[in-house]
């Protein structure tokens, strides 16, 4: 007998979400969407629980989570940093900004700093091409960022 350990509040939340979709296995993507919206990521235990509640194999849940880049199994940092690598940002040096962020934070894209403060992801266009290159920290957007700005931006959140 294998045991999945989870806190009561998490179990209840996942059960509620699954119930709101009639515990229908066909709704697994919608369920995962909501659950990730709450927890920020989809750890293995949560996927096991979703599979159990929807009565589908956990391999299928993981198949979906690993297929769509939207879903992640890595927890987000307290301040998630997203770097736009859309065409406009890219040609105006977003990659150099990204490299500097990686260097300063000591993590790669998709990772979280050991203290849990920052996580780093890339995205394609936030619709602010006029401000290229753009990065987001949480909800806040920074425009015309150069590698020199990176240190100060991070310092705001330390």
């Amino acid at each position: 007998m294998a045991v999945i350990k989870l806190s009561e509040s998490k179990v209840n939340f996942v059960k509620e979400v699954c119930k709101s979709f009639n515990n229908d296995g066909g709704e697994v993507i919608n369920v995962l969407h909501k659950v990730q919206g709450e927890f920020g990521y989809l750890p293995a235990e949560i996927q096991e629980l979703v599979a159990k509640e929807l009565n589908i194999p956990v391999s299928r849940v993981y198949g979906i989570v690993s297929f769509y880049s939207f879903f992640t199994m890595t927890p987000k940092g307290e301040h998630p940093i997203s770097v736009c690598l859309g065409t406009a940002c890219y040609v105006r040096g977003a990659e150099k900004v990204l490299d500097e962020l990686k260097r300063q934070l000591g993590i790669n894209v998709g990772e979280v700093t050991p203290d849990g403060k920052f996580s780093l992801t890339c995205l394609r266009c936030v619709g602010a091409c006029g401000l290229a290159p753009v990065i987001e920290v949480g909800e806040k957007v920074y425009g015309r960022v150069t590698p020199d700005h990176v240190k100060d931006i991070i310092a705001e959140y330390r």
Binding site: A44, P57, V58, S59, R60, V61, Y62, G63, S66, F67
Partner: peptide, 20 residues
């Protein structure tokens, strides 16, 4: 209906494997 195997990942890294 054992459900041990599923296609995972996408593109070049896609493969059939158990969960996780």
């Amino acid at each position: 209906t054992v459900g041990a195997l599923s296609a995972i990942n996408r593109g070049f890294s896609a493969v059939v494997a158990p969960a996780f």
